Computed example of a mutant assay.
Amino acid sequence: MPITLPRDLPAYNVLGSEGVMVMSDADATRQDIRALRIGLLNLMPMKITTETQFARLIGATPLQIDLTLIRMTEHKSRHTAPEHMESFYRTFQEVKDQKFDGLIITGSPIEHLPFEEVTYWDELREIMDWTQTNVHSTFGVCWGGMAMAWHFHKVHKHILPQKHFGCFRVQNEDPSSPYLRGFSDDCVIPVSRWTEVRRDEVEAAGMRVLLGSEETGPCLIEDKAHRAIHIFNHFEYDSDTLQKEYERDVANGTPINVPGNYYPDDDPSRAPVNHWRSHAHLLYGNWINEIYQTTPFDMSLIGTHRQVLGGPTEQL
């Protein structure tokens, strides 16, 4: 089954050319099927790149996905055309009365700021609380996951002495987790961050580390109490994303190391090799499958029952 996207969204043609099954809104309405409704709260500055990356991953499953692009209500994007935002995005205030099977909260390049100093923090706190009544499963990515861990558990975001930048190997710490079906004992994932959460604080808060590394700390954690998983690294990255970040910093004169374990022989003159694509599709496909297995068919029931993902339903 395909992912439903507006036909004139840039991701529609990009993904179609890659062989990802995409369907226009008009075609989707002719199918008598309950599509999974997934929201993407896009906090990244390059909106089109980010929405395409996530649509590629969640659109690769056998299920029909209805993707809704969401933005903060008052925050204005400086890097994406207003016409694109107006055409394809809805503000949180416009969708807050609706229910979603899943919500992805992306990262944001503001990790140096204390959470409370972020201009849209109050609305983001409202959104995170809203996920507990209007979203079946939430996926926090990088800063988005750190924000949720802070909001619900007061797990700190710690500044690193040096940026974790490159491709790092992480260990599969819970092979029985439904989110890690098909995963190898370890895998490689792109990392690009100046902050971290720490294992002892994550576990003290009652969350479980699913993927982790001694070098870069927790990678993927599960917060069962809030029907959420959080990843602090970037399976969604394109093959050249780290290269673009590196070249941008070099051009700006920003001190930056060559991303580790990314270029063959760490030589930036050679094309990087993607070692994470298969595990990226596995993780997001497993998340979508877990939603499909546990979300109520009647979407109005989302938030009216306590559903432990992978476990029995309990009425509130």
Rank of each mutant, 00 (worst) to 15 (best):
D129V: 07
D129S: 13
W130D: 05
W130P: 09
T131C: 12
Q132E: 14
Q132V: 06
N134R: 11
V135W: 00
V135F: 05
S137L: 09
T138P: 04
F139W: 07
V141E: 00
V141I: 15
C142W: 00
C142A: 02
W143F: 01
W143E: 00
M146G: 01
M146D: 00
A147H: 00
A147L: 02
H151F: 05
H151Y: 07
F152E: 01
F152P: 03
H153F: 12
K154P: 01
V155I: 15
V155M: 04
H156K: 13
H156V: 04
K157M: 13
H158E: 03
I159D: 11
I159H: 08
L160E: 10
P161I: 10
P161H: 11
K163G: 04
K163L: 04
K163W: 01
H164N: 15
F165Y: 12
G166T: 09
C167I: 15
F168N: 07
F168W: 08
R169A: 13
R169N: 14
V170S: 11
V170C: 09
Q171T: 15
E173K: 15
E173P: 02
D174T: 15
D174Y: 11
D174N: 15
P175V: 05
P175G: 08
S176W: 01
P178F: 08
Y179L: 15
L180W: 03
L180T: 10
R181G: 13
R181L: 13
R181P: 00
R181D: 14
G182H: 02
G182R: 02
D185I: 04
V188A: 07
I189G: 04
I189V: 15
I189F: 03
P190C: 04
P190Y: 04
V191S: 10
V191I: 10
V191Q: 06
S192I: 03
W194V: 04
T195V: 15
E196H: 07
D200I: 04
E201I: 01
V202C: 03
E203Y: 05
A204V: 10
A205S: 14
M207Q: 11
R208G: 07
R208A: 07
L210A: 09
L211A: 08
L211T: 08
L211Y: 09
E214P: 12
E214I: 03
E215G: 04
E215N: 11
G217K: 03
G217Q: 05
P218V: 13
P218L: 14
C219K: 06
L220M: 14
I221F: 13
D223L: 06
D223M: 15
K224Y: 01
